[in-house]
Write a protein that binds this DNA or RNA. Structure first.
Lengths: 194, 194
DNA sequence: GGCCGTGCTTTACACAGTGTAAAGTTCGTG
DNA sequence: CACGAACTTTACACTGTGTAAAGCACGGCC
């Protein structure tokens, strides 16, 4: 359907951006470097993306398609008890955050650009919706502690579980993924559950 | 001692950067714009700061001096019980984060530049030291819950209390400072205390 | 076979922003 | 008055973005 055998130029360019981001390269969004890495001319990049901001946005979308959140978040949906749900959500964050943190960092850096800001807000909104769904299931089981509502509890665990917190704990402070997930579970359970 | 009646050129430049950041201006670190706002020539800026990154770092330091963390964090130090200590820390975050978030955002955006990265790590380290001190006092009172150590608990509340989380909750989601502080208190108490 | 459009390349250019260089101005102080 | 420090003015090299236009290669279609 949507995938050809040989990737088109557009896909090659987006892959080049994501690969550079994954490598932590500073020139990940430098138009000339992207073109070089994708094996096309600099102008070819402009034929597909009118400017750098759009290229960044589309790269983020492309990553979403490639990574498929639903696959990773399936255990959260299929959990039954509030404890299981929160634990599964922490597991999800531990697995998914590393896969998208490079793009998140880029997005945060480019927030200046209005078009990118909108697109990035979309992705954060999707993330918060997931977190609020988690909180709602806790509330439905009658286990959500005061003073939280499903809404505020969702916002809070989305913020605590954000890529930027992950970045600080795992990247800057050297926490292992295991420790990150373990402490997140302890925090979620203690904070939200009666 | 350190303050003259009429601010020198250097101080005028740094104030111009901080004022622009506070206004949310995108050109807050544009050398020409800074010079214009400070009422000096562009070259005068280069006489005091060799490049943009250094200007950013020095602006962050200058803000620290102006804002005086110790003043704001005094109630944390003078608190007696673990509950009071954690509450005071949450109050501190609610009061202090808004004052420095613009600079924090800038720093995160400019992390690319190695010199700035080092300087920014210094500030984060200072912040974590404060958070670890808070956690140590809880531990000294024998109230720190498993699986936390003073070290990991400090890292965690520093990350949860970071400017970026504040940014997401208060700026993006419209939480009031009151709600932010209230939920932070609930989170800290529930998570860390036995 | 000739024609044409699509997608890409090549070359060139305008423009903004950073950082460097050097000569000129102003002013307080010995 | 002479000197030095701080700042201004002017000019320039360089990098990166985005625009423009001409040329090329190839596949489908009459």
């Amino acid at each position: 359907m949507s995938s050809d055998a040989t990737p088109g130029t557009r896909e090659r360019i987006l892959d080049a951006v994501l690969a550079s981001l994954a490598d932590g390269r500073e020139d990940a969004l430098n138009m000339a470097a992207v073109a070089r890495r994708a094996g096309v001319s600099r102008q070819a990049v402009y034929l597909h993306f009118p400017n750098r901001a759009t290229l960044g946005v589309e790269a983020a979308r492309w990553l979403d398609e490639r990574e498929d959140v639903r696959k990773w978040s399936a255990p959260v949906v299929s959990a039954t008890t509030p404890e299981e749900t929160l634990d599964a959500y922490a597991d999800f964050l531990g697995a998914y955050n590393p896969r998208i943190v490079a793009v998140a960092r880029m997005a945060y850096r480019l927030r200046a650009l209005p078009e990118l800001e909108d697109a990035w807000q979309d992705r954060l909104r999707a993330r918060r919706d997931g977190a609020r769904a988690v909180a709602s299931r806790v509330a439905d089981a009658g286990r959500l502690r005061a003073p939280f509502t499903p809404h505020t509890a969702g916002d809070l665990i989305a913020a605590i579980g954000s890529m930027l917190v992950w970045d600080e704990l795992v990247q800057d402070l050297g926490w292992s993924t295991k420790r990150y997930v373990q402490h997140l579970k302890a925090t979620f359970r203690a904070t939200l559950l009666t």
